[in-house]
Computed example of a mutant assay.
Amino acid sequence: MPLGVVIRRTPGVTPWARWAWTVVAVLPGAADADWALLREEDGACEFHAATLTLELHRADAEAYMQGLTANPPSIYVVLRPGPNARPEVTLVTASPFEAQDYADTGEDQVEKVDMPAGLVAWVRDFTLTHFKEEEFKKRRRDRQRVDLEEDGVGDARIPQLTDVYRAPVKARKERLQ
């Protein structure tokens, strides 16, 4: 589904950042756009920055279910620093897991936006069709005892278990001669 991304530009509050960019909305079914000005008031401007395709995959149905149970359900928009002052809209996703992966890099700006009601219904229908909850299976420990054999501890030339970290006396005397 095509999603238009609406970005608000406000004056920066530090001398290092001239503008602050935040994603304020998504427009389901929007036409293509390239930073079309929607409104301007008191130094703040809102742009229809880009239209990207929201793709849903069956393998990510669990992630979509997790995102739908959040209050409110959200879409995540990934922004990267662009060649000019404007950010580049890279991705839109309904998966909080995928959004977390992008946030972990520290290079991308991930914005969380409320999902419109029609989009919630579309994602919910897809998710309920493809989501199969897996039964939790607790792992059982195997009963094998691994602590019975001292493998790789100390010097094999020392027969006493109490002095495994002591240097062999015989080998030390041979080196001195």
Rank of each mutant, 00 (worst) to 15 (best):
R9E: 15
P11Y: 01
V13K: 09
V13T: 14
W16S: 15
W16N: 11
R18D: 15
V24K: 03
L27F: 04
A30S: 13
D32R: 08
A33M: 01
A36T: 13
A36W: 01
L38Q: 04
E40K: 03
E40D: 14
E40Y: 00
E41S: 12
A49M: 08
T53L: 09
T53N: 09
R58N: 14
A59K: 11
A61Q: 01
A63M: 03
A63R: 06
M65R: 15
L68Q: 11
N71K: 04
N71E: 15
P73C: 09
S74L: 03
V77E: 14
R80H: 10
G82P: 12
R86Q: 13
E88W: 06
E88C: 05
T93P: 07
S95K: 03
P96D: 06
F97M: 14
E98H: 08
D101C: 10
V110G: 09
D114N: 12
M115S: 10
A121Y: 00
V123D: 08
R124S: 14
R141F: 08
R143W: 07
Q144H: 10
R145V: 13
E150H: 13
G152P: 03
G154P: 08
I158N: 15
T162W: 10
D163W: 03
V164M: 12
V164I: 09
R166A: 09
R166E: 15
A167G: 10
P168Y: 03
R172I: 04
Q177H: 13
